[in-house]
Design a protein around this nucleic acid. Structure first.
Lengths: 345, 345
DNA sequence: GATAGTGTTGGGAGCGCTTCCAGGGAGGGG
DNA sequence: CCCCTCCCTGGAAGCGCTCCCAACACTATC
């Protein structure tokens, strides 16, 4: 059986309290007893019971990261592994554990909500890319669980970390215009997610600023999957844009395949620009011009922000400040965009 | 402050024990008191404290999945998200939580080992694709923590779940031979991982069986990354095979890019076959012929097997049986393989 | 009508740890 | 020489739950 604090205390000839002090590096222990206790710990092969400790301290060193149902199907998108890597990295460095909750649809989402919100293990939650109407947000507030959302959120009590989707979309659009394009279409993301809205908004702003027309037919909506991108592009092909701004690389890749299937060349006939900068943007031919977002950093910062939120809430500040952070995006020029022909008009 | 069992007991006018019985659905509670207690629970907004419960029952309902350092860099490969999805699915269905441990190198791996093996929260561990010399395995044995490895393992006490890598590699090679190829090269995986060994072995077996020569120059080793696949292919190009069997789709994609860069056509000049069946095998041009492994199922079955191992160890069976499972693979024929020219000889 | 059995309840010990509090010993200042 | 600190240590009370055991009805049986 595993050793307890008492066993160690007995073999060291001290009290349980003293052993506890040694383990928690409390200053008030004489060097002599300290080493005696350390030997005893060694000898017993003692390891503290984390659960008992949690019960006494009311801290678990566990946080959760939850991926809502609306995006679980996108989970194979390299975005998530990268984000997770950043998140685990931050956890590792701070001695925290990360519980991964994916809504898989095999179980009632009410049950999942309940399980997350009332888990009892979780000190806080990172909500990965929830849609704006995500029902988990109210539950989390109700249960008083600290959380940070990835992606902006309209409720102004919500802590979030976001990337500059607006600016990224602007850069992408400016780039196309700079290359001489005027017939520019876009494949937008679903309208119930903030990035979808923002990237579309950035696109439209720049188009308006340049007095370029954007008819309804030039805007198609995809669901961030490759198939969705392909379908959207097939629709756009009817209006023959010379360039397309896709709200994600995965959709851009779908678009490229649709363009190819129509026997058109990229970038000669149609230029394509994506968003995200996922690895397969380098796999596709031609290599994808895109807007880079610092995915791994997003995960890391979300977790670190969560730690701040948790410590705010623990230190009992009544009306703690809301934590928000917006990370910059960056234009990555590769080979899927060429010059537009439209200078002539 | 959050309510405790005692609070509920008081408002229901019963003892703590009775409330506990209601919560744990113990049969010996009269319908009358049961409903009274349920009302009280409702009224107090009571939720059981999972940590206290764990301390009393010695069960946490938490398992861990750990991705060793050797494969963390491959984490963006769609293999992992898919596997994780299967794993979380199984956890969700069984009311378990999943702690994700990625070795990121930002922290000493000894510390990570320790943290996992002595976590105290974790009832068991799924070890994702550890290399054969993974040091975590001995730690896990030493601490007596139930675990299941994904991928076979030479130590015959290790529970594992694997796919039929040997059979898959055989199928792939047979397919190439059937198409008329005789100059077949392979891009193998690292030799310290079981799948790398097995896939190479399957390849060699079939080649031998058909009395086809395999010189050393026809075998290149990659590290499962696209860049590794590309480098390996560049090397193989010197000996001009007419077909290549790559040990993973990601490496196959790298190979395709190397072949393209050398101005050769696929499948006309060189046929390429991969292994895994990841989504981007459909993105690449031409679509990749490959060997499919049921990735999501691997994750699910690993977790379910772990549950069995845990319940074995809990029920105190001294020498519990070793759990092992090998899943079938399947040939997926697409467009990256063509007929070999070598029938003439 | 006494006895055994069955179903229901409350009391209490204990899970392994932290942490407050009080007490004892040593050292320094008056 | 005494008193006041300060440092170190042990005792004990909890954290919130489970679960065993004893106690108490209340019915069924002979």
């Amino acid at each position: 059986m595993s050793q307890t604090l008492d066993d160690v205390a007995k073999t060291a000839g001290v009290s349980r309290s003293t052993v506890s002090r040694v383990i928690n590096a409390h200053p008030n222990v004489s060097a002599d007893t300290r080493s005696r206790v350390e030997h005893a710990i060694e000898k017993c092969g003692y390891r503290p019971n984390a659960v008992a400790r949690s019960l006494a301290t009311n801290r678990t060193n566990i946080i959760g990261i939850v991926v809502p149902e609306s995006v679980t199907k996108l989970f194979t998108d390299p975005y998530f592994p990268l984000m997770l890597r950043g998140a685990t990295e931050a956890c590792n460095r701070n001695g925290y554990h990360l519980i991964l909750s994916l809504f898989t649809g095999s179980i009632d989402s009410d049950v999942m909500h309940d399980r997350i919100a009332r888990s009892g293990y979780i000190e806080g939650v990172v909500l990965a890319n929830s849609s704006l109407d995500e029902m988990l947000v109210p539950s989390l507030f109700k249960e008083g669980i600290p959380f940070v959302n990835i992606g902006r959120h309209p409720d102004d009590r919500v802590n979030y970390i976001d990337v500059d989707n607006l600016g990224g979309a602007r850069m992408a659009t400016e780039h196309l215009i700079r290359m001489g394009h005027t017939r520019i279409a876009t494949i937008a993301g679903p309208n119930n997610m903030a990035p979808g809205q923002d990237r579309l908004e950035g696109f439209l702003e720049v188009m308006r600023a340049h007095r370029l027309p954007v008819s309804k037919e030039m805007i198609a909506e995809g669901d961030y999957t490759e198939a969705g991108g392909r379908a959207a592009m097939m629709q756009l092909l009817n209006v023959r844009p010379t360039a397309v701004f896709a709200s994600s690389d995965t959709m851009a890749i779908g678009a490229i395949k649709a363009i190819r299937a129509a026997n058109l060349a990229i970038p000669d006939d149609i230029s394509v620009i994506g968003f995200d900068d996922i690895p397969s943007g380098l796999t596709i031919d031609p290599e994808l011009t895109t807007v880079r977002q610092p995915i791994e950093q997003i995960g890391r910062l979300a977790v670190e922000t969560l730690f701040n939120v948790i410590s705010d809430s623990t230190s009992g500040k009544r009306e703690a400040s809301v934590h928000r952070l917006v990370l910059p995006t960056e234009l990555v020029i590769r080979k899927s965009c060429g010059h537009g022909m439209s200078r002539k008009d």
